[in-house]
Design a protein around this nucleic acid. Structure first.
Lengths: 164, 164
DNA sequence: CCTAAACATTTTAGACTTAAAACATCTCGA
DNA sequence: TCGAGATGTTTTAAGTCTAAAATGTTTAGG
């Protein structure tokens, strides 16, 4: 290996066009699917995607979650969750109470109504997803799962590096 | 094949848990990476992601684009583009003029300032993407590209079916 | 030529989103 | 126990986003 080829990697700008294209394709896929789910949720149930997502988190936590938990799980800001929860409490889908052991903490749960409505939506939602990913074989799905897991790990390390 | 096994596929709810997990993982990856890019754009250039994305579209179109074109390419609503463009014209990054041949149409371009600033941001942006996807091998990238292309096609067909 | 439909954009009303600051509460060590 | 820092939530200001209605312009068919 010559000196030139060694320094090249360090000094000359490398070509990352492939990674850039990959990122744009990933973004396109997600935006496309998200938009479709959003449309169907509105048409069929007159509900927004963020509300559905929040209810989905709570459906998996019968004992409730704190706002911080929700914020971390949904990867959105704290303030965002505050407003979302406010509207869902208002509409009777959520119950909010201050924790008995720590008065800073708000614990939220699905109400009976909220759970019932969510379950109906979730059942249909699952068929939409199956429809949207319908062209993929089982092997495709497995392979995508594997590669996206690797991607997620790679991205998390990049986030970590920046925060150091 | 028995009658039971034939009717099963039609009448009984199928299990689409894998596709659902795949969708959630796809969404997680995109949200994670999008958040990271957003943070770095803000920290480093004090610019928002939608503005960067809009400038990226225009950088590829030296002769300008109509608002409709931009709206379709970015997969966002028309009204959204109107506001985004307004702010970027205000800050001197974009030039907007009514088409000579069709007074309904607004043609927007990067100004000299806009192009210069975008090029600086884009160069750094590309290194961030390379960093974020750094753990993937060339083969991983190729395979992801292929599977996401298939996913996109599948999703587009689902959108089409609904709109019929 | 006229006008109905198509098209491009803007406006409107409301929801979502973020980052940062403010506020409230808790924890822990001196 | 007292106060400093950590933690959980809300508030604030600004921007992004959508769907739907409104506005302005063009195009085509009669």
């Amino acid at each position: 290996m010559t000196l030139d080829s060694e320094t090249k990697a360090v000094e000359l700008p490398e070509d990352h066009a492939d990674e850039l294209r990959l990122w744009l394709r990933l973004l396109t896929c997600t935006t496309l699917i998200e938009g479709e789910i959003r449309s169907r949720l509105r048409e069929r149930f007159d509900v927004t995607l963020p509300r559905f997502d929040l209810m989905a988190q709570l459906d998996k936590a019968p004992d409730g979650m704190t706002l911080s938990d929700v914020s971390k799980r949904m990867m959105v800001s704290n303030g965002n969750v505050t407003g979302l929860v406010e509207r869902l409490v208002e509409s009777g889908h959520l119950d909010r109470r201050t924790s008995d052991t720590d008065r800073r903490v708000q614990v939220i749960r699905l109400t009976k109504l909220g759970r019932a409505e969510f379950r109906k939506m979730a059942a249909e939602h699952e068929t939409w997803i199956a429809d949207i990913f319908g062209d993929l074989t089982e092997k495709d799905v497995r392979e995508l799962m594997r590669l996206l897991a690797k991607t997620k790990g790679s991205a998390q390390k990049a986030v970590q590096r920046r925060q150091d």
